[in-house]
C-alpha cells in the first residue's frame, strides 16, 4: 500500500487502518441477469472498488446471475455498455474466487464452457457453506 494507494483512494491514506491487519471475508452474491436491471453492473463496480481495500473478496453467481458470465455478449444494438469483458479483469485485481452454482447453470442449460472466465462450479450445499463462512455478504 502506501504511495501506490494514495491515488486510488483519492489521497486518503488508509495505512493506519491497514496496520490493524484485519482482513474480512466479503462475498458479493449476484442473482440478476445483466442489462435488464442495473444490479449486475452496480455489483461489479462495488467489487472493483472493494479490491482497493485488500480484503478477502469472493463472488457468487446464482440464479439469473450466471447469465452475467456468459460468453458472446454483444450490446451494441441496445446501446448499453457491454461490461462482460470486465469480469476478465478481476484476476488483475486479485479477485480470483468466482463461485457459480451448478444447479443454476443446469436449470438454464449452461455449462462451465459457456462462461467467459475461470470459475469454480459448486453445488447449492457448498455455496451455502461458503456463504455462511463470510464476515459480510452483500446481495445484488
Amino acid at each position: 500500500m502506501g504511495e501506490e494507494m494514495t491515488e486510488a483512494t483519492g489521497g486518503i491514506d488508509f495505512e493506519d487502518e491497514d496496520a490493524s491487519g484485519v482482513i474480512k471475508k466479503f462475498m458479493f452474491v449476484n442473482r440478476k441477469a445483466p442489462y435488464g436491471t442495473i444490479y449486475a453492473l452496480e455489483a461489479l463496480e462495488v467489487v472493483l472498488i472493494s479490491a482497493a481495500f485488500d480484503q478477502d473478496v469472493s463472488l457468487a453467481f446464482l440464479d439469473d446471475g450466471v447469465y452475467q458470465l456468459v460468453k458472446g455478449q454483444h450490446t451494441k444494438a441496445i446501446d448499453v455498455k457491454n461490461f462482460s469483458p470486465t469480469y476478465r479483469a478481476l484476476e488483475g485485481y486479485d479477485i480470483e474466487k468466482l463461485y457459480v452454482e451448478k444447479e443454476s447453470l443446469e436449470q438454464r442449460g449452461l455449462t462451465e464452457a459457456d462462461l467467459l472466465v475461470d470459475v469454480e462450479v459448486m453445488s447449492s450445499a457448498d455455496i451455502a457453506k461458503m456463504m455462511a463462512e463470510q464476515d459480510v455478504v452483500i446481495s445484488f
Binding site: M5, A52, T86
Partner: peptide, 15 residues
C-alpha cells in the same frame, strides 16, 4: 479495449 475499464493504479503497475 480488452476489459472496458480504466485500471486502478495498483492494477496498472502490475499489468
Amino acid at each position: 479495449n480488452d476489459y472496458q475499464i480504466a485500471p486502478a493504479i495498483r492494477v496498472l503497475t502490475k499489468a
